[in-house]
């Protein structure tokens, strides 16, 4: 192929690319939808704690929230709890809330209270007895953590663990902004 032919081809392809970019530009903003994925509104749920207190995720809007799905039998869940508690204590006055969702449909509920005592956990721990919240979050692995900003949008998803204190701090500071 001659140089002139090549240059014509380059220009044609670049013009086609630019035209496609123009044509495919978003003219409307998409409506808010919920999904357990970064950029979406966090799926809502209402669950009870062991002592009957009711927590609805959407009512926590305006706070930065960490949803941590866990179970007592899961070693990485156990390993990351002290770090979560420490970071919760550091940031709770700035509007940070931890909502630890026990996957009670696959856990022994009787083991939850001793677990909370053992780790001296002060953040709310709710029980997903029916498994509805786990289903809404399409739970595949434990632990699974969702960092939600003050507008209720998921900003980070961490599947697996244990999360280190530093990881928690950097992500919490992002969602508190």
């Amino acid at each position: 192929m001659q140089k002139t032919q090549r240059i014509i081809l380059y220009v044609l392809l670049l013009i086609t690319g630019a035209a496609w970019i123009l044509l495919s530009a978003e003219t409307t903003t998409t409506s808010e939808s919920t999904a357990p994925q970064v950029g979406f509104l966090a799926p809502d749920f209402t669950l009870n704690t062991m002592d009957g207190q009711v927590y609805t995720l959407s009512k926590l809007r305006g706070n930065a929230v960490l949803i941590n799905l866990w179970a007592t039998w899961c070693p990485p869940c156990r390993a990351e709890m002290p770090a979560i508690e420490k970071v919760y204590q550091e940031y709770k006055d700035q509007g940070f809330i931890v909502l630890a969702v026990n996957a009670a449909n696959q856990d022994d509920i009787a083991a939850v209270t001793p677990f909370l005592d053992q780790y001296s956990l002060t953040f709310p721990v709710v029980l997903d007895v029916s498994g509805d919240a786990s289903a809404k979050y399409q739970l595949q692995s434990l632990p699974s953590s969702y960092f939600i900003d003050r507008q209720g949008i998921i900003r980070e998803v961490i599947i697996g663990g244990p999360m280190s204190e530093t990881l928690l701090r950097t992500r919490v500071e992002q969602i508190l902004k």
Binding site: E156, I158, S164, E165, T166, R169, T170
Partner: peptide, 17 residues
């Protein structure tokens, strides 16, 4: 600043760091 508070987390097995 976050790592200064817990320097050993430099070696944490978190791929997200």
């Amino acid at each position: 600043p976050a790592f200064t508070r817990k320097p050993l987390d430099i070696f944490a097995i978190n791929p997200d760091l």
